[in-house]
Simulated scan of single mutants.
Amino acid sequence: MTVNIVTPDGKVYDHHANMVIVKTTSGEMGLMANHEPVVAPLEIGEVRVRRVDNPGHEDSIAVNGGFMEMSNNVVSVVADSAERARDINLSRAEAARQRAEKRIEEAKTTQDTDELQRAQVALQRAINRINVKNGN
């Protein structure tokens, strides 16, 4: 099957795979060739792809929301943003985590619930990128 991951900035990933594992809003879902058609909303999380051309290796992609569709042996992921593990700058991700944690503390102090929610999402995204880069 073919796996495509696209964002508003363009294609992030395009390979043939034996299996794809995504984090949907209702839990993890594993997809293999000839899976029945399905559409599912995605959480902030890791997409893992077991490629045909490299048995025993898994590509990891940090995905920040969106949805996936499986149809006719094509898995399409449309995400707000996505980044392959090899392309993640760990120091930038760590800095983003620290900024988000600071924003959370400030929002709690000022009781700004909207800013608190935005900062919590930013923290989730940063932690996701860190975990994907570190292979967690």
Rank of each mutant, 00 (worst) to 15 (best):
V12I: 15
V12N: 05
V12F: 10
V12D: 09
V12W: 11
Y13D: 03
Y13G: 02
D14P: 00
D14N: 12
H15Y: 02
H15T: 12
H16K: 08
N18Q: 10
N18P: 00
M19S: 10
V22M: 09
V22D: 05
K23E: 14
K23N: 13
K23A: 14
T24M: 06
T24C: 05
T24W: 07
T24I: 12
T25I: 13
T25N: 12
S26F: 11
E28F: 04
E28I: 01
E28C: 00
G30P: 02
G30T: 09
L31E: 02
L31R: 00
L31H: 01
A33L: 12
A33M: 14
N34A: 15
H35P: 10
H35E: 14
E36W: 04
P37T: 14
P37N: 12
P37E: 12
P37W: 10
V38H: 11
V38N: 06
A40L: 12
A40W: 08
P41T: 15
P41C: 06
L42S: 05
L42C: 09
L42V: 13
I44L: 05
G45T: 12
E46D: 10
E46N: 04
R48N: 04
R48Q: 13
R48W: 02
R48M: 13
V49Q: 08
V49E: 03
R50Q: 09
R51Y: 03
D53N: 09
D53C: 01
N54M: 06
N54W: 03
P55M: 07
H57S: 08
H57D: 12
H57E: 14
H57Y: 13
D59P: 01
I61T: 13
I61M: 09
